[in-house]
Design a protein around this nucleic acid. Sequence first.
DNA 1: AAATAATTACTGACTGGACAGTCAGTAATT
DNA 2: AATTACTGACTGTCCAGTCAGTAATTATTT
Lengths: 217, 217
Amino acid sequence: MTVAAEPCEVMTKPRQRRKEARPAELAAAALELFVEKGFAATRLDDVAARAGVGKGTVYLYFESKEALFKAAIEAAMTPTVEAAEALVECGDLSAAERLREFVHGWWRMVAGTPIGGLPKLLVAESGNFPEIAQWHYETIIRRAMRALGRIIEAGIASGEFRPVPVEFATRIVFSPMFSIIVWTRAFGDMMCDLPDPKRFLDEALDVLINGLHGERK
Amino acid sequence: MTVAAEPCEVMTKPRQRRKEARPAELAAAALELFVEKGFAATRLDDVAARAGVGKGTVYLYFESKEALFKAAIEAAMTPTVEAAEALVECGDLSAAERLREFVHGWWRMVAGTPIGGLPKLLVAESGNFPEIAQWHYETIIRRAMRALGRIIEAGIASGEFRPVPVEFATRIVFSPMFSIIVWTRAFGDMMCDLPDPKRFLDEALDVLINGLHGERK
DNA sequence: AAATAATTACTGACTGGACAGTCAGTAATT
DNA sequence: AATTACTGACTGTCCAGTCAGTAATTATTT
């Protein structure tokens, strides 16, 4: 059998050397696949293929599958939480309006991107990678919650909200966010009656803000 | 090397034949391990060992690892949702009090048991076993939500709650339950500042019930 | 500018270990 | 003696991780 000198192939681009770009490209490809299929079901051959390299190349830039996992998550998370924190700083709005801004801004930022799959992924893998889960909790979640907590504190200080325990109120506002992002990723495909997430967040904010405003029953 | 005729072993009980009891014992052992380690990381050798049988026995009663997974989940879930539905039927309480009963009763029922690990497990494996996730959603979650929804409907009908959209209100009340059960299982071990779940549920119920009562801002 | 050598980013066939699933054999029960 | 619940060593497969080899790039020589 002869080599059949390139019979109009589908653009078989030649091997390239791009030391600088590889790590980020690999991390991005890995993130997509980990979010799609989970850690165990993701093969490094596939990650390499999606990044347009051979499997060996993965090991030039990452120690192991686990190291790649960690790197992919960290690379995606850090900029996101920073952007989320920035949402808190918006002008002279009421606490209620700032809560709405924060929640909606966050949703616009993560919905439909691989980053939106991270909460589900981290929940799924928390048992197998406790160090990563802990890092994520301490570095990302705490920080995001503190941002949310500051809005609520300000609302209490100004008399707009009644004096609820901030620690708890923060987590209470978090829970619809957490639920909807995990929920849509876990069951979204198969649920014909999934409510529109934006509408859900709106209704939840209505109830919560109303609950934070009013007198204790 | 000789066989060393049983030098005071740790109660090596003889092989037994218990056709009737095996499936349930295997399903229970499997549930524990799947909840502890996830589907991929659970070895059938371990399941068999925990159930006190050899690996081959697993295949006398279950077609495959996946079939065992499905059976373990279904066996645990069905009685649980029935018990949860029964919680709705309690006497002539206000809607608010019935919500509290439902949420606390559910928590008492699942906290600290392997069943409490199922939401996290199902989230984690939803991508790899869409049929199981779909069965779970349609059979369990819908049913539990309908029970919750009935409480809210009654509260609206009696004028205790304002006329919120029930579909949404149901999911809003669900979200702190979902959050806390998944959260404690995923991050509970490593979080020194995890709030007491019972207190969290109480505070969430306060805010939510207050939010359902009051006038729209 | 062209040829040659030196360097190194990149590759993919290969290995070793882990584990789902099998089946010939064992022993409890009838 | 016949039946069958049960066993665990074995097989085939899958995949993370390796490494000898390839080719793109840079440096050096002519």
